[in-house]
Design a protein around this nucleic acid. Structure first.
Lengths: 168, 168
DNA sequence: AGTTTAATGCGAATGATACGCATTTAAGTG
DNA sequence: CACTTAAATGCGTATCATTCGCATTAAACT
């Protein structure tokens, strides 16, 4: 739920209205196009942008965050569209959905093989990155065979050093 | 979002109305009282019941589930109260809140030292119990010192044997 | 270029969760 | 054991993330 700086071009959009978007014709809207587009996903402008934003994000982003980041003149998308794209990305294994400390909002990240996990303070909700992952070299014993693991979520919760004095 | 069988007593409540609850006076409403009440939590009827229900649940329960289970004549509670109690339990380390596959609803469990984790099918959302836990014998490397770990959530996602044929 | 199928824009609906306030209950005190 | 006080609950309502529906638009395929 952060605020982002909107570009001048977006402001131009706002004043000129939607019908006039083509005053930008000739300006490449696709500069971020990746050469390796994920399999089985139809390539659209909006999806390209969401993928690009996720790939370049330092922290997990909510749908609203992504929507805000798209308001920079390089091709925006409606919030419900962003949700649909994210749902697809998760289903295809491109992205990972998490609820840090089960807060109100879900956040999304690229499903990197080298991912991060987080510890969250129960009291102040501060998020602390974790550098190792217990899932490396671990084989889950599932009650049903034939499950193909695509990814995982892990979250540690407790009290950070500033909140540890609180009674248990 | 399951339906539960309501007891005859509850039906009596419904027909007689709230003001008449004391026709049950003398009937113990506290049969489930635990001898070891968690520290730092004020003991009320509603909290006792929620704790008892959590302690005897075989699967994680949502706030709505718990609220429904309380409609059995042994002392019910309003949904918002259940939410408040659960929030407190989580804060005190008594319960654990999870969002299996980040579905709409959060579920709660007792924070057992010997807990379960789950694998979830990305497609059909089937939940499969896991018998081991990678967090045993694992020490997280956090970017900040002095974090006191109280618990953790882990969730594996992928495709179950019935959905594995779907294209990646 | 034309056709077809799927994606998006847009608004409105849904549903879990949080909040506010009056009333009740638990716990402490003399 | 009555009395006081702070905290919990009942109850309704507000909030806000997420989903849905449908008309329009854009991608992909002859």
């Amino acid at each position: 739920m952060q605020m982002y700086i909107f570009s001048v071009i977006t402001e131009a959009f706002k004043t000129k209205g939607k019908k006039d978007k083509d005053f930008l014709k000739g300006v490449s809207l696709m500069e971020e196009t990746k050469s390796n587009w994920p399999q089985g996903i139809k390539r659209t402008k909006q999806r390209e942008r969401v993928l690009f934003i996720l790939e370049n994000a330092k922290d997990p982003l909510s749908a609203t965050d992504i929507c805000a980041k798209m308001e920079d003149g390089k091709g925006s998308a409606w919030l419900s569209t962003v949700y649909r794209i994210l749902e697809l990305f998760v289903k295809k294994g491109v992205a990972v959905k998490t609820n840090v400390m089960n807060q109100e909002m879900a956040v999304y990240e690229i499903n990197h093989p080298k991912h991060k996990h987080y510890a969250v303070c129960i009291n102040c909700h501060k998020i602390i990155k974790m550098d190792n992952c217990p899932m490396e070299n671990f084989t889950p014993e599932l009650e049903e065979n034939g499950f193909r693991v695509v990814g995982h979520n892990l979250e540690i919760y407790g009290y950070c050093k500033d909140c540890d004095h609180l009674e248990k």
